[in-house]
Design a protein around this nucleic acid. Structure first.
Lengths: 209, 209
DNA sequence: ATCCTATCTGAGCATCGTTCAAATAAGAAA
DNA sequence: TTTCTTATTTGAACGATGCTCAGATAGGAT
C-alpha cells in the first residue's frame, strides 16, 4: 500500500534501507498481524526486491530480532515513564500496569518480542542489558522500595514471579472469555489492575497508562 | 522415519487416517519442534499423499486444533490426578505444579495449544467445557476450599490470576537465564514451587509431579 | 456383478525463505 | 573528469509450503 519515505539523506541506493525495512515490518505487523509478516512482504512494502533485505539481515529471524529490539526499547521507555510518574511502592504497580498495557496496545509486536526468544531458549538481551531495560527496572525498583539485595535469591525470585504474572496476564488479557469480567469491573484498566493486585506482586494501582 | 501402524480395523483405504495424522503430528512435534510441523511433513510421516489430510481436516489449523484438543485432554487428566493426590488447600498447589510440569515436559505441545487460541482470540473450548477441563478444575477446587461462589467476581478473579501466574511461569521456566536460580534453589521442581508460592495464589507445595 | 460414495493420488498454483550471478550506483583514486 | 572499486540492488532460480481439483481407487450396499 504505502510507499517508503524517501526524504532523508540517501547515502546509497535506497538511503538507509535497513531502517526502512524495520519500519515496513512494523507497519505490516500492526496492520496485518504477525502471520502476514513475510520477508517478501516486508521488501514489497519497502518498495524493494525480495533479495535486497539479505544485504542488511542474514535471516528473516535477524530482521525480526531488529523489530523485537525496538519493541523492547519502546517498552522500556514506557515503563520508565510510568515509574517516574509514581512514588514508593506504587512504582511497582505502575511498572506492572505499563507492561501489560504495552502488550495490550501492541499485541503483534509483543508476540514477536517473545517468539524470537522462545526459539533460542534465551531471554532477549534487550530485556536485561542496561538499567533502562524492562527486567532490570523491576528489579531495581524492588530494591529501592525495601527489598534486600544481599538476600539475592529472594529478590530475584520476586522479580521472576512479578515478571511471570505480568506476562501471563498480558497474554491472557486479549481473550474474549474475560470480556464479561472486564465489564463487571468497569473496563479493561480496572480488570488489569484487579488481577495484578490479586497476584500480590504489585501492591496497589493508581497511575495512568 | 517411522511408519504409521496398520494393525487395527481398516474400514477404508487407510484405516483411521484422521487418527494416524494426529499421531504423526504429535510424533513430529515432539521430535522436531513446532516449526517442523508442516502439513506435508505430517502426511509424509503418516505415509500418505500431501492432499490426503484435506479429507479429514479442512485446514492445517484444524489439524492443529485436533492436536491441541488432545493436549488439553492430557493436561486435564494430569491435573485431575494431581488433585486427587492431595487434600485441602494443597490441592490448589498440586494443580498449579501439575500445570507447569505439563508445560515443561511438553513444550511444543503446550505452544500449539495456545497458538491456535491466540489466533482466534478465544480460549480453547477444551479448557473450560467440562468438569474435567483444566480451568474448571481450578475454579471448582477454589470453591471446595472455601471460596464463595456467590461472590462470583472475586472467585473468577482468583481463578484468572492463578491461571495467568501459572501460564506466565510455564512460558518463562524454559529460559536459560533462570538456570542459576534453579540450581540455587535445589532443582527445577523447587524453583517452580518457589515462584508459585511467591505469587500467593497456590498456598503450599508438597506433592509429586 | 453394479453402482455409489468416501477416500486417496498426482499434478498444479501461488507464496514463501534463500542463494547467486549479474547489473547498478556511490565514493575514492587517477 | 574519467576510471576503478566496492557496497548495494536486482532477477532468476531452487526447494518447500498450504491448498485446490480432476481423476483414480476401493469399500459397502444394492
Amino acid at each position: 500500500m504505502s510507499e517508503a519515505k524517501r526524504v532523508e539523506s540517501r547515502p546509497y541506493h535506497h538511503g538507509d534501507l535497513r531502517r526502512a525495512l524495520v519500519d515496513a515490518a512494523r507497519r505490516l505487523l500492526e496492520a496485518e498481524g504477525p502471520s502476514a509478516l513475510s520477508l517478501r512482504a516486508v521488501a514489497r512494502e519497502a518498495g524493494v526486491s525480495p533479495a535486497a533485505p539479505y544485504h542488511h539481515f542474514k535471516d528473516k529471524a535477524e530482521l525480526l530480532d531488529a523489530v523485537a529490539h525496538e519493541g523492547w526499547e519502546i517498552l522500556g521507555a514506557q515503563m520508565s515513564e510510568a515509574k517516574s510518574g509514581a512514588t514508593g511502592p506504587d512504582q511497582l504497580t505502575a511498572l506492572g500496569i505499563a507492561y501489560v498495557c504495552f502488550a495490550r496496545d501492541n499485541p503483534a509486536l509483543y508476540r514477536v518480542m517473545y517468539d524470537a526468544a522462545r526459539d533460542k531458549e534465551d531471554l532477549p538481551g534487550d530485556m536485561q542489558d542496561n538499567k533502562e531495560s524492562a527486567y532490570c527496572m523491576v528489579r531495581d525498583t524492588m530494591i529501592e522500595n525495601g527489598a534486600d539485595p544481599s538476600q539475592d535469591g529472594h529478590l530475584e525470585l520476586a522479580s521472576v514471579a512479578a515478571w511471570c504474572g505480568a506476562h501471563g496476564l498480558a497474554e491472557m488479557a486479549g481473550f474474549r472469555q474475560f470480556d464479561h469480567l472486564k465489564e463487571e469491573l468497569g473496563g479493561e484498566r480496572p480488570f488489569l489492575e484487579a488481577v495484578l493486585n490479586h497476584m500480590g506482586l504489585f501492591p496497589k494501582a493508581h497511575d495512568g497508562c
